Simulated assay, not measured.
Amino acid sequence: MALSLSASFATLALISLVLLNPCIAFKPKKLMNYSSDYSDGLSWLSGSATWYGAPTGAGPDDNGGGCGFKNVNLPPFNSLTSCGNTAIFKGGKGCGSCYQVKCTGHPACSGNPSTIVVTDECLYGICSDANYHFDMSGTTFGSMATPGQEDALRHAGRMAIHFARVPCNYQGLNVAFHVEEGSNPMYLAILVEYANGDGDLSLVEVLESTPGATWTPLRQSWGAIWRLDSSHALQGPFSVRLTTLTSGKTLVAENVIPADYVPNTVYQSAVQFSPVL
């Protein structure tokens, strides 16, 4: 899946660089389960990392990003987020995938893994000169440091890291659907949030509440936002069927979006994927 960093790249990883932010920066009170159960037995891959935004921030100034997730500075994300380059972002279908990241090549590195979520996209420049690159929030980058050495690590600039894909586990939360602003009887756009396990999606479908209705696939609009442009007035309540990208698992949230939905509102489902890959 990955190629090791070259010797010359490993040398450059120790040099502090002044870099521009390459990321596209366009509420629940539960915490994500950052368990260390996955620290051993993983196939760790080599990658590189930088950081952007405020030193202890979530990355984008608007606390969102190229996936469309809202308020990533708040639980359950808690600013432990990152942009991913092409191999990680996957045209937006990598949104919501979870990784453990760690560093060992700097005196401030703890060597202990942090669990993060992909919430944004990293383009061009520093993001395209390695097979796998994470442009992390300042909080995420600092989380790889020995306690008290966060600023020292952030000052190191570009860093060689190890990373591994792990299942997402939003403890106490079910999958949620944010109906996006602008949705109306002829147009429905939804953001899918807090999916356990794979975290990523390859297909989102809706089922109207009309006799003989069949599942209708939505188009990926951008990031984790999916849309349906209809030739007729859509009739709710709507059920939503999700298919994950990594393992092809499916999940159905029945009648999760009411007929009288309000745009810019989150609707919690009663279902959740298993927190395994």
Rank of each mutant, 00 (worst) to 15 (best):
L74K: 10
N71M: 15
G197M: 03
L245M: 10
T140K: 01
E150T: 15
S48K: 08
Y52M: 03
S239A: 03
N131W: 12
L201P: 10
L228R: 12
G138A: 08
E193C: 06
L242D: 04
T139Y: 00
H178S: 07
T86G: 09
I116P: 00
F163I: 02
A253L: 03
A224L: 02
T50P: 02
G172C: 04
G53K: 06
S82G: 01
R227C: 10
F134K: 01
N169E: 10
D37E: 15
V175N: 07
E205A: 12
F69I: 01
T214V: 10
S269Y: 01
S110I: 03
A233C: 07
S143R: 06
A253Y: 01
D135H: 01
Y261C: 07
P22Y: 00
S4T: 13
S143K: 05
A54P: 03
A224Y: 02
C127H: 06
V204R: 02
P107D: 10
I190L: 10
G92K: 03
T214I: 13
S247L: 12
M186C: 10
Y99R: 07
K93R: 15
V262C: 05
P147Q: 09
S36N: 14
N264H: 13
Q272D: 03
L234E: 11
P28V: 12
Q220L: 01
A152G: 04
K102D: 11
R219I: 09
G47S: 05
C103Q: 14
P60K: 00
N169H: 14
M32W: 11
V72W: 03
L31E: 13
G105I: 04
L14T: 15
L123W: 07
V118D: 09
W215P: 09
A87E: 15
N174M: 10
G111R: 04
Q272P: 02
V204E: 01
A213L: 03
Y267K: 09
P107I: 13
Y261Q: 12
A10W: 12
M144D: 04
G172Y: 09
S4F: 12
M186K: 14
C122H: 04
Y99F: 15
F238H: 05
H162N: 14
A189I: 00
D62P: 00
H232N: 12
K70G: 00
G68E: 04
A10Y: 12
S6M: 04
N174R: 10
N131H: 09
S36M: 11
L245E: 14
S43Q: 14
F238Q: 05
T81H: 09
